[in-house]
Structures are given as structure tokens and as C-alpha cells.
Write a protein that binds this DNA or RNA. Structure first.
Lengths: 377, 377
DNA sequence: AGGTATTTGTATTGCCAATGAACTTATGAA
DNA sequence: TTCATAAGTTCATTGGCAATACAAATACCT
């Protein structure tokens, strides 16, 4: 999930790969079927080129042809192209404090399968948890065969910090995990034979799910309120992960200087006032402190990142009062709010958004580089 | 300075432009002269291709050939390529609260000319200030002719928020500017005939200057302590500006909830405890509050952005005590600090870093797209 | 019903930039 | 002086797109 600038020269295939991705992107983003001619018109390619690329996408099984519409005007009717709803699909897995989840998303972005099991995962240790997760994954893959879908890859969402290069979970404090090699543990047990699963942060993947659910989103902050508080940042419809993949650690932004001690060793972290444990506390001012703290932390993030939208997810999704606090804080603290107001809303996705986002991230990988998937059709 | 994803198909020239930039980049980054063969070896291109690209760069006046070294081993000696020190140069301009500055940076990144005038610019109004700035720019350009340099473009650093698409300064509170069209005012008065100047934030440009001065930097936060407090964020050696160019507004991150009133209308902003006015205040705890506040705000930025280096600039550059406070705060508050410590240091550049950075940004534009400058050789 | 206009999609040719192999140039070492 | 080695150049080949011409399928007009 990090960007590495490689020094490889562009070849002729680079340009084809790039144009194939461009054509595919247009088909994916269009609300209605796209003709080869429309593809050419939208990009500036000739119809010949657009046609060749369309044929390649068809041959790769990444798009499908649909019958032409009733034909409104003169001229030969266009055969439309739409994202394929069979073929490759992404497998998303989620480990969370109180549940495990698996889901499958196809190339259209539709969730085709979803299973989850409730249950506290704290203190069970990574081994048994990942074994259960693998079983969930295999059950999902088995159900899939009948639908004409094949798992192209898998991604695992974890509530913690991950070394993105290796897929090693450095710390997941709320699971009591430390330095867990999820990839090594999971790879042999998954239904995706050749490819190791990607491992990423739960909030990052949930942000991707949010992005997929709302085509209008472009640049936003997704804040996930669970036992811990994390955030995913999306810019230009792409996940922003920082240089090492640890961006969005909003949970330990100081919102009450000298405040309560946090598990991380510092004082006054957002997590101490707006984590689930604090939200559930019986003290009368808990909601007020959570709202104010969350507002200040999110305002800091918006000032630093320059975003125009905030989505509240996880436990925050059910708290309109927090939405109001955040909105008020943003109006007060964000410099540009005067002439460019920041939109705030609660997520409409359920508790397994991260699993959906993880599956979506696999699909995004295919969307971004269709040329790599031509051979495997 | 913002990224717009355009839907233009790749053509054959795209690949040439890309490879030309790749070759140029290698020449620019190499500590010693680079041969055509080394270029080929480093990129994987054939010697034929590398040679053709090298010739193109030479013809465009972007690189120069140097005599081969004393020849250590067998074989035909290599003719080295180095960045050209004549030809195109970038003009950087800076408007600040207490000075105006202009400077010229050549393609090697060297500062070839620098002038500044001290004097309080507050309350003078944009017109007279920009007139003085234009005079400074013209003086710089006139001195330039003798050195074989030509101004390729100009960039203006301003302590405020800029609409990057239009170059309009939305707000520069410490200059008392509001909605000033710097581009329209400056363009006809500048020595760069066809091109309108870019306009950007002072801290962003200063960060670029820091980047140019230290080849080891890749991902860092540059914090500029002036009357206002701003920050520039650099990822993968590229400026991160957010979707609208307003990223890095650290000055209004809340560090003392319910604290002193800020000019922006909120309370407890970083600027109220660590802006220049607060630093100069005679109260005994001013330094302590500034250090603690700055530390908390920077820790928030590092947690949110995932950075491994912080550079303190502007007035902070002369304050070792603040450096210590920041270091302590990062150790306490940054989640990943335990296993990936964050480096903190003070900038070695002077008060006109932003002007240098602005000029550098123009040069970066040429570095990034040499093909666009082939015709104008 | 038949011709024309219009639009979609396909086939052919030419161009551009990179590749690969052969060739030339310039040096050190035997 | 000759050979080995490495740098740089030349030339035919290849992959991909542009441009153009052509075939196919429909609506509209008479």
C-alpha cells in the first residue's frame, strides 16, 4: 500500500498497459454501458485503438458485452461494455476485537459473499484466531465456485500497525498482538494458491469500503471508533498510507494535555476520551469529552491534510451527537472552513466494513493494472 | 502544486518523455558525472537508447559533457554528463512580514543570485509590496544575463493560503491580505515573458529548499515558525499539498484546549503559544508553553502523516530548547517512536529559504519534464 | 420499399521509439 | 604492435498508436 518509485524505463508495453488501464477505468466508472466509440471519444484515442483495447479486456474476462440499447438515434447501435461480474474476485478478511469476517467482492465492486463470526478475540493468541479466519476464508471460497468467481487475491484487515512490505503486524494492542507474521501463518491455509495475502490497517480498509460505496467521495478522512481509534485517509480516490504505511494514527493525538494515561504511555490521547472503553464509561461528562476531543483531533487532521469530507465509522456511526460535536469543532478550528466548509457524515456501512474494504483493495489492484491479468484469464 | 488526474492516453512520445525524464533524473542525482553506458546500465535501457536520450538532453541544453576522467581501467573512456550550469534557471520570489527576497537557482540546484530587502510589509497593501518585489525580480534578471542564464519561470512564496489553480492569495492574515490576485498583478511586471508565476505557501517552498539542501531527506515535516506557524510536508521527495494546496496548516491545531484566543477565532491554537509574538512575550513560561505546544502539534502531524524526520525552520531554527521539547514530545506521543525514532533537527538555511525553495520549484518543473523544454533550447 | 445520412466497428498503412546485434572508437595491457 | 575491453553509434526489427479507408447496422426521408 506504499508507493515505491522504481527506475524502470518505459517500453512499448508500458504505454499499452497504461492505456488498457485507462480504458478499463472508464468502463468501471461509467454509470451505463460504454461503447468502443465512446471509449475513443472520451480518451482521444482512435476508434481502432479503443476497439483493440476493448477486445483485450474482453479476452481477459475483465469486461463483458451487453446487448445494445433500444437505439434512440441514427447510426449503427453501440455494443456496450460493462465490468464483468464473473471471473476474478477479491477475498477480504478481517480480524477485529469482537469478530472475524470474510467477504468476496467481484470486479463490479459488488459484495457477493459475506460471513462473520462474533466473539471476543482478545487474549486468544494469533494462532487460533488466524486458524478460524482461514476456515472462514475457505468456506467463502467453496461457496464461490458455483457462482463463476475465482479468488484473485486476499487482503487481511487488522486493528494495528502493519509493516506493509512484509505483512508483519508490528502491534495490535487491542488484540494483544505483537510482531505477528500473518502472511506466513495464513498463506498456506488460504484458498488463493500462489499469492500471499496483503495485510493492512483496519481503518485504511474501511476507508476503501466507504470510497467504493459512495462514488462522490474523492478526498476524505475516515475515522474508525473501536476500542482503539484509527483513521484512513483517501486522496484523489487513493489510499494515503504514508511512507511506511502508518499514516492516520489519530488515536494518539493529544486532545487533553496532561489528561488520563493511555495504554501507549502518553497522556490525553484521543483514545482515552473517545475510544470505546471511554464511550461506555458511566461518567456523566463522557459524551461531552469524547465529542470535544474527537472534534479537536479531527480538526487537526483536516488542517494538516486539507480535506473536505469526514466520515465517522465504527461505533461513531451510531452517534449523531458526536457528529454534531465534530461539525462544530471543524467550523471553529479549521482555517479554511469559512469559505470551504467541511462535510461530516456517519458511515452507512456495518461493522464489517474493513473486510469489504480489504476485498475491494484486491479488486482495485486488478482495476489499476488490467494488463497484468491478461495472461491469467 | 496539486495533482490532477487527467485522462489522456499514452502515446509514443509519452514513453520518450518518461525515459528522458528518467535519464535526466539519474544525471541530476548522481554524485559524479554519468556516462551514457552507465545510464543504460542503471535503467536497463540499451546503450543505443541511452545515447539517444543523452544527445537529446545535450541538445536541449539541460546537461553538459565533461572531459573523461584519467582512465583507470581498460576500454574506451567514458564521456561524463553533468547537469548544465548555464541555460535555464528558476526565479524565486518571497513576500514575508519583515522582508522581500528574490533569488535565482540554476539547473544544478545552485543559488546563483540572491537579493533581499528588510522592512515591515504589514499594512502597506499588496500593490506597493508587489511593485517592490517586481523591481527586485527585474534587478535579479538583469544581473543574470552576463552569466549565461535565462529565467525559465518564476514562483512566489507568500505566508498564507493560496488557491493553487489561479494563484490567488485567499488569506495572508499576517500581511493583512485577503483575496489578492498576485498573478494578475505581477505577470506584466516580471522578466519572464510568456509564463505566469506560480504562487504558493511560504512553508511549502521552504520545505523544498530544505529538500534541495539535504540529499538524504525523503519524507519529512518542515515547520516554519514566523508570526504565523506553517508547515510543509514532503513525501518521496515531492511536496504534499493536499487536494486544494492547503495542507500543513499546523498553526491552528489546538494545543491548549480553551486557551488564549487566536486571530482565527478559535482558542488554544499552536500559533497563540508558538508564533513569533508569543515567543517574544515576556511571560516566564512562554518558552515552556511554546515547546510543549509545538511538540504536541508536531507529534500529531507525525502520527497522522507517518514521517520519520522533522525540520524546524524560521525562528525555530535558532532555538535549541524548542528542538529538545519537540524531541521529547515525539518520543512520548508518537506511536511508532518506540521502534522507529523520529529525527529532529533545525534548519541550516537562512531567512530566505522560501525564496530559494520557490526558485527550486521552477527548476524541479524542468527536471520533472525535460521533454517539454526541448523545443525552447 | 428503397436510398441516404449517420454512427459503430474493423482492416491497412505509416510513424515513432525502443530493442538487439553488429560495428567503430579509444584506451590499457601483453 | 597486437589483443582485450569498454564506450558509443548505426541499422534492421518489433510493438503500439494514428490516420485513413472500408464494412456494418440502424434511422430518417421520400
Amino acid at each position: 500500500m506504499t508507493s515505491a518509485s522504481v527506475r524502470v524505463p518505459a517500453r512499448q508495453q508500458s504505454i499499452r498497459a497504461s492505456n488498457l488501464a485507462l480504458a478499463y477505468r472508464l468502463v468501471l466508472d461509467a454509470p451505463t454501458p460504454v461503447s468502443r466509440a465512446a471509449l475513443a471519444a472520451a480518451t482521444g484515442m482512435t476508434r481502432a485503438t479503443a476497439g483493440a483495447l476493448a477486445d483485450a479486456l474482453l479476452a481477459a474476462g475483465l469486461v463483458a458485452e451487453v446487448a445494445p440499447p433500444p437505439a434512440s438515434s441514427a447510426g449503427r447501435p453501440a455494443t456496450g461494455l460493462v465490468p464483468a461480474s464473473t471471473g476474478w474476485a477479491g477475498l477480504g478478511l478481517e480480524v477485529n476485537v469482537d469478530h472475524l469476517a470474510a467477504c468476496v467482492v467481484d470486479l463490479t465492486g459488488a459484495v457477493r459473499h459475506q460471513v462473520s463470526i462474533e466473539g471476543d478475540q482478545r487474549g486468544r493468541g494469533p494462532g487460533p484466531v488466524l486458524a478460524d479466519l482461514a476456515e472462514l476464508a475457505n468456506r467463502a471460497a467453496a461457496d464461490l465456485a458455483a457462482t463463476g468467481l475465482h479468488v484473485a487475491g486476499a487482503a487481511v484487515a487488522v486493528p494495528g500497525l502493519v509493516r506493509s512490505t512484509s505483512g508483519r503486524v508490528l502491534r495490535a494492542p487491542n488484540l494483544d498482538w505483537q510482531d505477528v507474521d500473518v502472511v506466513a501463518d495464513l498463506t498456506p491455509r488460504l484458498p488463493v494458491t500462489p499469492l500471499a495475502p496483503a495485510v493492512g490497517n483496519e481503518a485504511d480498509y474501511a476507508a476503501l469500503a466507504e470510497l467504493a460505496a459512495d462514488r462522490g467521495l474523492r478526498d476524505f478522512l475516515y475515522v474508525s471508533g473501536e476500542i482503539g481509534v484509527g483513521a484512513g485517509v483517501v486522496f484523489d480516490r487513493r489510499l494515503f498510507t504514508g511512507s511506511r504505511g502508518w499514516a492516520g494514527e489519530i488515536g494518539h493525538v493529544t486532545v487533553e494535555p496532561g489528561g488520563d494515561a493511555c495504554r501507549c504511555g502518553a497522556r490525553g490521547c484521543l483514545e482515552t476520551v473517545a475510544g470505546l472503553d471511554a464511550l461506555r464509561a458511566p461518567t456523566p461528562d463522557a459524551a461531552v469529552r469524547a465529542g470535544a476531543g474527537l472534534g479537536r483531533a479531527i480538526a487537526a487532521a483536516v488542517n494538516l491534510y486539507d480535506l473536505d469530507t469526514v466520515v465517522l465509522g465504527g461505533a461513531y456511526a451510531g452517534r449523531p451527537d458526536l457528529e454534531e460535536s465534530v461539525r462544530a469543532a471543524l467550523t471553529e478550528h479549521v482555517v479554511s472552513a469559512g469559505w470551504a466548509p467541511v462535510a461530516v457524515r456517519r458511515s452507512g456501512l456495518g461493522g464489517t466494513a474493513a473486510a469489504v474494504g480489504a476485498a475491494t483493495s484486491v479488486v482495485h489492484g486488478i482495476h489499476a493494472d488490467p494488463a497484468a491479468w491478461e495472461a491469467r484469464a
